[in-house]
């Protein structure tokens, strides 16, 4: 064997731990966040190694990309605010912990217990692999992960879209502070403009492809939606006035649409069946409709979440209630 996979895995594992330490202990928080994003990409590689390409895509797009963008948006907002007011040092590497020794002890004991629990319970059960794979042809799709997400355990996924919608609502509820300031638009650069012009349609196309291919290969609504969300973030950063304010009815429809379509699809089949029990013949198409609607909503919600963290939500015209 030319290439030893086991040493690759060990090296990757060490790299993951090293990056985690580096990110958590970074003096500069900005650096920490960038290392976190890099860490996410390596996690994605690890997941390819354990045969989870769907998740590798999701982790790279959401876990690393979108989450990192949220952090950077929030950090730049705070830095800007701080420059405008009194300069206060926030740099605070691990120091300042109150009862350090106890925390160290507690975490070590806990981690060891968890590792023991995993080692002792490893390999007893096959889980539901056989069950899921043997009934996959009843689900209307070929990719087992899509089958679980949109058919076997579709109810979880429905509620999960509800959680995302709640996050967007929450960002609206929290967003409006007393000091309202819009992002100072950076002057538009030619390169960025061309980039955005080319990139946006490509991202939309790729997202559409990911949804379509998700029924048999890695992909699906969440990965595609994350791509759209990424496009939204890039557009916002390039200074585009994307409609993200809840005051606009169109925005609200796009945000809530995916959840509503999912709910209504589940209800529509309910005449003489259970909730979300699709008829065998049309399962594939129902799943596709749900995925398309959710992709758009997920993309929009992720964009709104970024706008909320980067303080791009408030317009001075929006009214204040009691």
């Amino acid at each position: 064997m030319l290439f030893d996979w086991l040493s690759f895995d060990l090296l990757l594992a060490i790299a993951l731990i090293a990056l985690a330490v580096a990110a958590l202990r970074a003096r500069d928080l900005f650096k920490g966040i960038v290392i976190f994003m890099l860490f996410g990409l390596l996690v994605a590689i690890a997941w390819v190694r354990v045969h989870a390409p769907d998740l590798a895509l999701a982790e790279a797009a959401i876990g690393s990309g979108i989450t990192g963008a949220l952090f950077l948006g929030a950090l730049s907002r705070i830095e800007r605010k701080k420059k405008s007011t009194a300069p206060a040092r926030l740099e605070n590497p691990v120091g300042g912990s109150t009862s350090g020794a106890w925390t160290v002890l507690l975490t070590i004991v806990l981690t060891v217990q968890l590792a023991l629990a995993v080692l002792r319970g490893w390999g007893y059960s096959d889980g539901l692999a056989d069950e899921a794979l043997s009934r996959i042809d009843e689900s209307g799709v070929i990719n087992p992960v899509t089958a679980v997400i949109l058919n076997f355990r579709a109810y979880d996924t429905l509620l999960e879209i509800g959680v995302l919608l709640l996050a967007a609502l929450g960002v609206y509820a929290i967003g409006e502070g007393p000091t309202v300031r819009n992002l100072q638009r950076t002057s538009r650069s030619e390169v960025l403009e061309t980039f955005v012009h080319l990139l946006t349609p490509m991202i939309v196309l790729t997202a559409g492809y990911l949804v379509w291919v998700g029924y048999k290969e890695p992909g699906g609504a969440f990965q595609a939606g994350a791509l759209l969300g990424g496009a939204g973030v890039v557009l916002l950063l390039s200074g585009r006035e994307l409609p993200v304010h809840a005051a606009r009815p169109g925005v609200r429809i796009v945000l809530g649409g995916g959840f509503l379509v999912f709910l209504l699809a589940g209800l529509a089949v309910m005449q003489d069946r259970a909730f979300l029990e699709y008829p065998r013949a049309s399962a594939k198409y129902i799943i596709l409709i749900i995925e398309l609607a959710c992709t758009v909503s997920i993309g929009a919600i992720l964009t709104v979440l970024f706008a909320g963290c980067a303080n791009l939500l408030t317009t001075p015209s929006e009214e204040e209630g009691t």
């Binding site: 509620l159 509800g162 919608l165 709640l166 609502l169 929450g170 609206y172 509820a173 409006e176 809840a246 929006e318 009214e319 204040e320 209630g321 009691t322």
Partner: peptide, 25 residues
């Protein structure tokens, strides 16, 4: 309790109903 047609009212109802649904769930 919430002023009619205020921002708070607009946000309270959807969030509260989703929360209520979550509780029943």
């Amino acid at each position: 309790y919430f002023k009619s047609n205020s921002r708070k009212e607009h946000l309270f109802w959807p969030i509260w109903l989703l929360l209520w649904g979550g509780l029943n769930g």
